[in-house]
């Protein structure tokens, strides 16, 4: 009996030491709350929240310097996720929600000034001085930061066409009003 108690006690001490050691040894630098918030943000890096990117906004929210309803690209889903994470009440979005879009450079008009390229936060624009620039639409986050610098206004935003791989069944309309059970597809059209 005594040996058993001693053995368990010894184990407890051992594990306690190990835990304590690893807490120091593997301490993660940075602000874990800001990291978690950042992981919920859409990473569009558009600055619409009034911060120079998603990470700074996440840090501001973590410090309590800003509200959770400033990210327009994230929309309602992001607000809900942040409210859930931080244990706050969800608030209405303080901006307009937009449909997803990507930038497109008119090849006829681009003069190869490289100004848009310098502004793209995710390096989605390829080009060189005096060469036609192009946009990697797979990488483009739709932040619109490349639009203002273009001296010839040749960049436009085109809505992302819905692809089957990302398609979602619509949420069924509220049960009591539900009528067309077998035709959700039509409701979505």
């Amino acid at each position: 009996m005594l040996t058993a108690i001693l053995a368990i006690a010894a184990l407890a001490v051992l594990f306690g030491l190990m835990l304590g050691y690893s807490a120091i040894r593997f301490h993660v630098e940075g602000d874990p709350i800001a990291d978690q918030i950042d992981s919920l943000l859409p990473q569009t890096q558009c600055g619409q929240c009034g911060h120079p990117g998603c990470r700074p906004y996440a840090e501001a929210v973590a410090r309590g310097d800003d509200d959770i309803n400033k990210c327009a690209p994230g929309g309602e889903a992001t607000i809900l996720a942040m409210a859930d994470l931080l244990g706050r009440e969800p608030v209405a979005l303080d901006a307009e929600e937009k449909l997803p879009a990507v930038a497109f450079i008119d090849p006829e008009r681009c003069i190869g000034c490289t100004l848009c390229l310098q502004n793209c936060p995710v390096d989605a624009i390829v080009g060189a001085a005096k060469q036609l620039h192009g946009i990697l639409s797979k990488e483009c986050t739709g932040c619109e930061l490349c639009l203002p610098p273009c001296p010839v206004n040749c960049i436009s935003m085109v809505p992302v066409t819905e692809e089957i791989s990302g398609w979602r069944w619509p949420f069924p309309s509220t049960p009591l009003k539900e009528t067309a059970k077998s035709q959700p597809e039509r409701a979505a059209a």
Binding site: Q43, C54, V122, S165, G166
Partner: peptide, 17 residues
């Protein structure tokens, strides 16, 4: 599925940024 896809996309954007 669609959220997972978006998540992957935003991870990519974060890395590129």
């Amino acid at each position: 599925w669609s959220r997972e896809q978006e998540k992957r996309k935003s991870e990519q954007a974060r890395a590129r940024h």
